[in-house]
Design a protein around this nucleic acid. Sequence first.
DNA 1: TCCTTATCAGTAATGATTACTATTATTATA
DNA 2: TATAATAATAGTAATCATTACTGATAAGGA
Lengths: 121, 121
Amino acid sequence: MRYSKQRELITEIIKGRKDHPTADMIYNSARELEPNISLGTVYRNLKLLADEGVIITLETEDKRLHYDGDISRHSHFICNKCGRIVDLFRPAETPVELKEAGLTVTDEKCVYYGFCNCCNH
Amino acid sequence: MRYSKQRELITEIIKGRKDHPTADMIYNSARELEPNISLGTVYRNLKLLADEGVIITLETEDKRLHYDGDISRHSHFICNKCGRIVDLFRPAETPVELKEAGLTVTDEKCVYYGFCNCCNH
DNA sequence: TCCTTATCAGTAATGATTACTATTATTATA
DNA sequence: TATAATAATAGTAATCATTACTGATAAGGA
């Protein structure tokens, strides 16, 4: 994998924020520093980075992929109203059932939906 | 909500299987009994049933929505190789962090990825 | 039975993501 | 350092799951 300033920029953007942006949000952010960057480049690199395990993806009910630069084991909370995604650093326990059944777990994604403090009024 | 035989059929199909089918799979299944049913009808009713809480949706890495007729609290295991989705009836504990932060949880979706017995060779 | 309108079949549109192509830039090597 | 090979890019076209639209059909209350 060769160096490219576009990929470096995209990586820096994701690693530098905690709001779990979509490809489009990252694209807009990237254009501020690299106005000619293409949306395709953003998508291609996001996929690449996710495949390499440098970032992780989050499949939500809003039908867009969200990206997370924090690859440590943690869960997420998503507000039903404002869509904000919050990190939960006390992850859920992996069910014992999995080990008992001899299933190899490579990854886990726990998402909790509800209403955040701002939207709970 | 009026009765329709299409919606009843779709509901029966989802409730009657445990393989977490996609809209397309449900469509194919439905056409065996109702050859003229339209894909749009399947999608519309699936959305309707999910909104009503009669069924639940499962957002996975394969970019298609999967549906589950079992609305009891449980998690899922998805095989990285064959894509099979297995129910886990000993669900993960909801992190205490959520209650502490005063966040209202309405729903939770925990997905574990790995290799099932068939694919673990 | 008649009327209102939810639902349908069939098809067009949408929108996120991916693929393609000619050009540019990285990097190994002479 | 110059050159060659080719990975990566910008820009655009294509894909594909899902949703919206439209005229016809059918549920079900009066």
